[in-house]
Design a protein around this nucleic acid. Structure first.
Length: 595
RNA sequence: GUGUGCAUAGCUCAGCUGGAUAGAGCGUCUGGCUACGGACCAGAAGGUCGAGGGUUCGAAUCCUUUUGCACACGCCA
C-alpha cells in the first residue's frame, strides 16, 4: 500500500525529469538498517542513457523533494552509491497512515477491480475410502488459496471432484451382491421403489473396499492370481460396467454409497476447516464424455493406436515430444484424462470461469499438460481461459519416503490429526476458564497446517511430529499465543473501559517497525495470490507476530500513564489483532480466545 | 535414455522484479521473570548459496556445462 503510494510519488519525480516512469517502482528496503524503502530505477536508466547512476539518482532525489507533498512524507531521501535511492518516512506520516488503515474496513487491502471467476479443483477424495495422508496437502493448500482469492474479490468455486465412478465402486457393489444376493437392487425384474435406507453402514463400507482390494491382488505360490481373485475382479468389472451403463439397481445402490460417504467426508473435512462449494465427482462428467469425444472427432483429432483411441497434443516448441492423451482404452473404457476433459467441458458450460486451478500432486504435471492442451487445441474450452496446474510436493516420513504408518500401511488422515491433537492436549495449561479439548483441537490443527503451508508448496517435506508439535519457534502455536496475548490485554482494557484513540507517531524502533509491517499486508496477499504461494502469508504473519511480541515486551500498555499514548497503543493492538486473525482466517487456521 | 523439478548455516527451511552486509526456526553458548500470561524477549557463534564457466555496473536469482537427489515418461488415478 505504502509502496504504491511512494511509487506514485516517485513517478511524478521521474516524469518531471522526463525519465521513463516504468523504472520508478519503490519497494521495501533490503537493508532495514539503512532505510525503510528503496528505489533502484536509476541504475537501469543509467545503462539506457549512458550516464552515471549516482548522478541520475541525485537528480531524482532533488526532483522528489521538490514535490509539494514530499515535505510531509519523507524524513529523508538520499542517493547513495552506486545509485540506490533510500527513503525514510516521517513518523508522523506513518502514524497517520496506519491510523487510517486501522480505521478502514478492509485493512487497505486492494480488491480485484475487474470481476473474475475461478474454479479451484482440490480435495479429490475417493468415495467409500477413508481420507488418508495423501489428501492432506491438497485440502490445506486448496482451502487457503480459495479463501485468499475470495478475500481479494474473486468469485471462487471450490470443487471437491470426488472419485465416485471407477472400479472401486464396482468392487463394493459386486461384494454387496455376493454377500447379499437377494437384495432388490440385483433383481432385474424389480420395478418397485428401492429401499430408502442403505443395506450397509459406513463401517461396512470402509471394511469392504480394503478387503476386496486385497482379495483381487491375491496370488498363489508362483505369483499368478488365484481363482478367487480372478472371479472377484471379473465381478467388480461387470458391476462397474453395469453402473456406468445405467442399470437402475446398481445406480440406486451406488447412490446409497455416495450419500453415506459424502456425509462422512464432510465431517472429516470440517475438522480441517475445509469446505467445498461444489460436490461434483467423476460421475457428473459421465454424460459429457460422448459429447467431448464427438467434438474431438469433428476436428479429426481422434486416432487409433494399438486398439486405443488417442489425440495428439504435441507442440512444435516441445523439447521432448509430449505423448498423446489416451481417451479410450482398447477394452472400450475411459481413463481419467477422458473424465478430466469432460469435467472441463461441464465447467465451461455451467460456469464460464476465467480460470481453473488444479491443486494436485506435482507428479501429475504431465497429465495435466496433456489435458490442458487437448482442451484448448480442440475447442473444449475457449482459448482465453486460464488453466493452471498448482502442484505440490510429497509429505514424507523421516526416512525420506512417502509417509507410512509404523506397520508400513497408509496413514489415515483422522489418525494423523488425532496424533497431533493428542500431542497438543498434553501441553495445554490447566486453567478453569479453558476448554482443554477445544483448545487442543485448535492448537493441533494450527501445528499441522502452519507446518504444511509455510513450506513452498512444490517441495517435498518431512513430517516430523516431534518437531511440528514443539511450541517453540516458527510454528502455528506461536502465532496463536501472540494473538491470545493481545486478546488478554484488550480484555483488560475493556474491563477498565479504555477506548482506542488517534494512533500517534512511534516512540521506539520496534513500534515503528510494527507500524510499517502492518502496511505490508495487502502486498503480501497479492504476491501470494500471484504465485499461489501461501507460504508468503505464513512468513508475513510470523514476522508480524515477532514484532508484536517484541513490542509487548518493550512497552507496557495497561500501566501506561499518558492517556493519549495508551489510546494509541490500544488502536495499534486492535489493528494488529485484526491483521493476524484475518491472515489466519485466510489460511483456515483456527484461533482460540485463550490457551 | 529423455524431460521436469530441487540442491542455501550442524539440522529443517525462507529468500517475491537480478540490488547494498544471503535471512528465520531448531540445536549450541550468554543474558532477562517485583509489570498486560516465559508457549516469551535480548544477544553470540555458525555460509565458497552443490561445482565450473558465462551475461551484467551488480547473480542464490538469468544462460550454459557438470555432479547428486526426486519425480514423470500412451491404455491406474
Amino acid at each position: 500500500m505504502l509502496t504504491q503510494l511512494l511509487t506514485q510519488q516517485m513517478e511524478k519525480a521521474f516524469a518531471a525529469l522526463n525519465y521513463n516512469t516504468d523504472y520508478a517502482a519503490v519497494g521495501l528496503s533490503a537493508r532495514p538498517d539503512l532505510c525503510q524503502f528503496q528505489c533502484n530505477g536509476a541504475m537501469p536508466l543509467a545503462k539506457l542513457l549512458h550516464k552515471a547512476p549516482i548522478a541520475i539518482s541525485r537528480e531524482i532525489v532533488q526532483s522528489l523533494l521538490a514535490l509539494p507533498e514530499s515535505a510531509e512524507i519523507f524524513e529523508s531521501a538520499e542517493a547513495v552509491n552506486p545509485g540506490f535511492i533510500n527513503l525514510n518516512l516521517k513518523d508522523s506520516f506513518l502514524a497517520k497512515h496506519i491510523n487510517a488503515l486501522a480505521m478502514s474496513e478492509n485493512l487497505f487491502v486492494q480488491k480485484l477491480n475487474i470481476p473474475k471467476k475461478v474454479i479451484l479443483d482440490y480435495g479429490g477424495p475417493n468415495i467409500a475410502k477413508p481420507l488418508h495422508i495423501g489428501h492432506l496437502r491438497t485440502a490445506i493448500i486448496g482451502e487457503a488459496l480459495k479463501r485468499l482469492f475470495r478475500y481479494l474479490g474473486y468469485e471462487v468455486l471450490g470443487d471437491i471432484h470426488t472419485g465416485d465412478w471407477g472400479l472401486q465402486m464396482g468392487m463394493i457393489i459386486s461384494e454387496v451382491q455376493r454377500t447379499q444376493p437377494d437384495l432388490p437392487y440385483f433383481d432385474p425384474d424389480f420395478c418397485g421403489e428401492y429401499p430408502a435406507e442403505p443395506p450397509f453402514t459406513l463401517d461396512d463400507l470402509s471394511e469392504i473396499y480394503p478387503r476386496v482390494s486385497a482379495a483381487i491382488k491375491e496370488t498363489d505360490e508362483i505369483g499368478s492370481p488365484t481363482e478367487n481373485a480372478k472371479a472377484m475382479e471379473t465381478a467388480a468389472k461387470e458391476a462397474t460396467y453395469a453402473l456406468q451403463n445405467g442399470v437402475t439397481g446398481h445406480r440406486a445402490l451406488w447412490q446409497h454409497i455416495v450419500k453415506l460417504s459424502v456425509a462422512d467426508l464432510k465431517a472429516n473435512y470440517q475438522r480441517l476447516l475445509v469446505d467445498f462449494d461444489l460436490w461434483y465427482g467423476e460421475s457428473d462428467s459421465h454424460d459429457s464424455i460422448p459429447i467431448v469425444l464427438d467434438m474431438l472427432k469433428q476436428k479429426n483429432a481422434l486416432m487409433e493406436s494399438d486398439g486405443a483411441i488417442i489425440a495428439d497434443v504435441s507442440e512444435e516448441s516441445d523439447k521432448k515430444e509430449v505423448p498423446p492423451i489416451i481417451l479410450v482404452k482398447s477394452d472400450g473404457s475411459y481413463l481419467y484424462g477422458t473424465t478430466d476433459l469432460a469435467t472441463l467441458y461441464n465447467r465451461e458450460k455451467e460456469f464460464h470461469p476465467d480460470e481453473v486451478l488444479y491443486v494436485v500432486d506435482a507428479r501429475q504435471a504431465l497429465h495435466f499438460t496433456q489435458v490442458f492442451r487437448a482442451a484448448k487445441k480442440y475447442g473444449i474450452v475457449p482459448e482465453k481461459i486460464s488453466l493452471e496446474f498448482v502442484g505440490f510436493g510429497t509429505m514424507n516420513g523421516k526416512d525420506g519416503r512417502p509417509f507410512k504408518t509404523r506397520e508400513g500401511g497408509i496413514l489415515r488422515l483422522a489418525d494423523l490429526i488425532a496424533m497431533v491433537v493428542d500431542n497438543a492436549a498434553g501441553k495445554i495449561q490447566n486453567k478453569e476458564d479453558i476448554n482443554a479439548a477445544e483448545v487442543a483441537e485448535m492448537v493441533g490443527i494450527s501445528v499441522l497446517k502452519f507446518a504444511d503451508l509455510s513450506n513452498y508448496r512444490m517441495k517435498d517435506y518431512v513430517f516430523d511430529l516431534e518437531k511440528f508439535s514443539a511450541f517453540e519457534g516458527k510454528t502455528g502455536p506461536y502465532l496463536l499465543y501472540s494473538i491470545v496475548r493481545i486478546k488478554n490485554i484488550l480484555r483488560k482494557l475493556a474491563e477498565e473501559s479504555s477506548q482506542p484513540g488517534e494512533l500517534l507517531p512511534a516512540v521506539s524502533s520496534v513500534e515503528r517497525e510494527l507500524q510499517l509491517k502492518l502496511d505490508g499486508f495487502s502486498d503480501v496477499l497479492w504476491q501470494a495470490a500471484k504465485d499461489k504461494a501461501p507460504n508468503y502469508l505464513c512468513e508475513y504473519l510470523y514476522e508480524l507476530s515477532t514484532l508484536m511480541n517484541s513490542f509487548y515486551h518493550n512497552h507496557h500498555i495497561i500501566t501506561e500513564e499518558s492517556a493519549e499514548r495508551k489510546a494509541s497503543w490500544h488502536r495499534l493492538l486492535n489493528v494488529v489483532l485484526r491483521t493476524l486473525t484475518t491472515g489466519l482466517e485466510i489460511l483456515a487456521i483456527p484461533v482460540p480466545d485463550k490457551m
